[in-house]
Computed example of a mutant assay.
Amino acid sequence: MESPASSSPTSGPRGRTRRAILDAAATVLAQNQAASLADVAAAAEVGRTTVHRYFPERSDLLRALGVDVLDKVAAATVRARTEDGPAMAALERLGQELFELGESLTLVFDESLAGTWKWEGWEDETEADRALARLIDRGHAEGAFDTGLDQDWIVQVLWSLLYVAWQRGRDGGTKHEALTLCLRTLRKSVTS
């Protein structure tokens, strides 16, 4: 029988419990990287032993969070339909979908945790990365994106603006305001 830590059920009670733990961990660790598994358990409204059953060590939880965020980015990219419509509209849809991932991505990009933990799989090119690259190439070909801005620059601008938008929300701005400013700045930053 597979242990809860090594399997990743997506439905049923085990799947819901695992999801609750991962979501709570993203929220708790985004606010305090030193938070304990007991803090995560309290936020997930489960017992500490339940968290340990799914994630015996903190490193197991962090590894699972990294994989979970990659899965969320992949799903967000699919939802954004990056191949459909004008490139700028597709980039804005992708920005909006990624913005909705909020704390999960904020956690991954937090420098204080990144200095102590290496997120596995984040250095590998994913289908989401390739979809964004194709979108940028299409935007260049359509004349929608400034051809003086290369792929890497536009990718970095997108992620930087998302981070600033998430910070705006953390600092008391509304979600709507943060997303609106993010997409407006993105549009102005990459257009020719």
Rank of each mutant, 00 (worst) to 15 (best):
D129F: 02
A20R: 10
I136Y: 06
E125S: 04
E127S: 06
A89T: 13
A141R: 10
E103L: 15
Q96V: 13
R14E: 12
R81H: 15
A165W: 08
W117C: 04
L91Y: 11
K188D: 13
A5I: 02
I154T: 00
A144L: 12
C182N: 07
D171C: 10
G47Y: 02
L98N: 09
F55N: 00
S3W: 02
A43L: 14
L101W: 09
P56R: 12
A133K: 00
F109D: 05
S59V: 11
D84P: 09
Q33V: 12
I21R: 03
E142W: 15
I136K: 01
K188G: 04
S8C: 03
R134T: 06
R19M: 05
G66C: 07
K175D: 13
N32S: 04
G172L: 13
V78S: 09
L62D: 07
D137Q: 15
L161T: 07
A20S: 08
G115A: 14
E83S: 13
T17Y: 08
R130A: 09
R134C: 02
G115E: 15
S112N: 10
A80S: 14
L132V: 01
D171Y: 15
T126L: 13
L91D: 02
E100V: 12
I154D: 02
W166Q: 02
V40A: 08
D171E: 15
A87H: 11
A114N: 05
A25C: 05
T174P: 10
R81D: 13
V40W: 04
A87D: 07
Q31L: 03
R58A: 00
D110L: 06
P86V: 08
E123G: 06
A35F: 10
E97Q: 15
V46R: 13
R168F: 07
D71C: 14
